[in-house]
Amino acid sequence: MKRLAIVLALVAGCSAPAEPAFNAADVMFLQMMIPHHEQGIRMAEIAEERAARPEVKALASAIRATQSDEAKTMTTRLTRWEQPMEAPPGSHDAHGGLHETRPSDILSLEKVPAGQFDTSFLNLLTGHQHNAVDMARTEVKTGLDASTKDLAKRIEESRNAQIQEMLRLLAAPQG
């Protein structure tokens, strides 16, 4: 007991301001968001090649660029925290994998007929970004690290704005 007290005193005494203050929700958020970003980036890359409407292409390019930056930030953070890049297998199975965008979905985007591409892409990415918003909200509520929560807030905001833009593109007459 006395030893523990000493150890705790040492911990308190040694705590440099730079010591990361994060919790498992932060780690889980980053571990789930990195592959989610990679899927979004892959969809956007396909749209940069295949989209018919210039505004869909431009949106896809900007999404690819901004999500690539975010993915780097998140990867760097997990590395700095000395945490694994991937969550233990099975830890995301609460919903039976219902919410994933699967590799086969992204593959189907490569094969959808040209005339249907923009609609398929916008619907697929809108669903994907709704799920990003859900994950970001969970992080804002349950995370600890301030900069990760800030990132989650920006993700929530920018994905909601992208969803609005994509719904507008879906509703607008095809040009």
């Binding site: 505004e55 390019s61 660029a65 901004t66 690539s68 929530e156 704005a161 833009e165």
Partner: peptide, 17 residues
Amino acid sequence: QAHTSLAGWEPPNVPAL
């Protein structure tokens, strides 16, 4: 990079843009 701006894409937050 040419784009239409969105909330959450404020210049200091998106060095890619």
